[in-house]
Design a protein around this nucleic acid. Sequence first.
DNA 1: TATACTAAGTGTATGGTGAACACTAAGTAT
DNA 2: ATACTTAGTGTTCACCATACACTTAGTATA
Lengths: 222, 222
Amino acid sequence: MVNTKYEGFETPGVTVDLVLFTVNESRLKVMLVKRVEEPFRSDWSLPGGFIELGESLDAAAQRVLVEKVGVSDVYMEQLYTFGKPKRDPRSRVITVAYIALIPWQSLPQPASEKIIDLTWSPVDHLPKLAFDHKEIVNYAVKRLRAKVSYSNIVYGLMPKQFRLSELQSMYECIIDDKLDKRNFRKRMLATGLLKETGKKDTAGAHRPAMLYQFKSKEIVFL
Amino acid sequence: MVNTKYEGFETPGVTVDLVLFTVNESRLKVMLVKRVEEPFRSDWSLPGGFIELGESLDAAAQRVLVEKVGVSDVYMEQLYTFGKPKRDPRSRVITVAYIALIPWQSLPQPASEKIIDLTWSPVDHLPKLAFDHKEIVNYAVKRLRAKVSYSNIVYGLMPKQFRLSELQSMYECIIDDKLDKRNFRKRMLATGLLKETGKKDTAGAHRPAMLYQFKSKEIVFL
DNA sequence: TATACTAAGTGTATGGTGAACACTAAGTAT
DNA sequence: ATACTTAGTGTTCACCATACACTTAGTATA
């Protein structure tokens, strides 16, 4: 904090931007929206919005999530604050970036007229992005990949019940590497964070798999 | 980013606040400055300041460091952004908090007339702090303690050359726990980040110790 | 209804890493 | 010369991560 009063200073704008992750078709993807205004008109960008005065940063991120994606109650955490002076060519804008995770199954089907200005892009084949959004996405991917290895953060991408093989391929999509099945199962069950549901998944022409779920929604560091 | 223009919105103030760590008298300490104005007049607070329009967040943090502490070229990283609506009772202020590390030996001696409004407080015996600064400090301590265990971030607190026993007690002060001498030395030397200087520290009535230094100033994750 | 197909599910051996643990070495002070 | 202080050094053991291949239980189809 500082002793100086703020009146008389020209003040920067403050936004939140969301890096919303999902996994679909075995790819880690982020949500992008098409800009309809200059600058960067018709480029892709992260969903975001200016914070409102009575609203905390977390609340602003939640609001943007509801407004732009139509979901709530997903895992979200603050990522980093980006504030280079020229990141928005119009005026000084500082953005507090958030990561959010959403299971593909939980996504609402977008209305058909809106689908054109919303896309899910694989993180390793991003299109040109507006502002410094590519930098933000890359930073977010780095954080997510790191966090996957020392926490159970993937729960945020899983449906309520799932096969262990689905959990494994979720890990594999995120870290972009293969894992050993037996070791993976041992490690996961050893955490004590999973419980059998008793139900079996009988889909597919093969032996049915036990369905599991997380005991708790809390994120835990291993 | 968002499509809406920002003109016409009442905008929040944006500051940077510094959690500046050092270790002295075997205690992990943070720098605090006494407030001279309302609100929280004569309470302790973190050094900070409003960002200027042409200035990046990192640059603002550097500037505050130079202005308030009189040092530069120290390890610094962005910590987190705090933005609860009522954290400043006067008006909406969002603060981007930074961590900085400085070896005690590198601190300039404060001019005697200023010393009264600057103090170094052990992190586990903080006085009452202005705004939400206690929350910020606690978050910073958590981050520092975690990071110490998986990186060589302590280099930021060490003088150029040091005995391994000094390095060990630096770790011990930060994590507030004792370490085994032989295991510590093995682990540190195994990182390959240290090199012998060839010099010995002959101070003290005992066997002289080899002086070491870090090969590089880069922070490395182990 | 037998056979092919697919994914589920399971155990062991090995190498590496972290933790516990105590004595000798090399100086200074008295 | 003796006491004192910190520097410096190796080994054992328990645990964990890794590598690795076959049997099981269903469905599909010939």
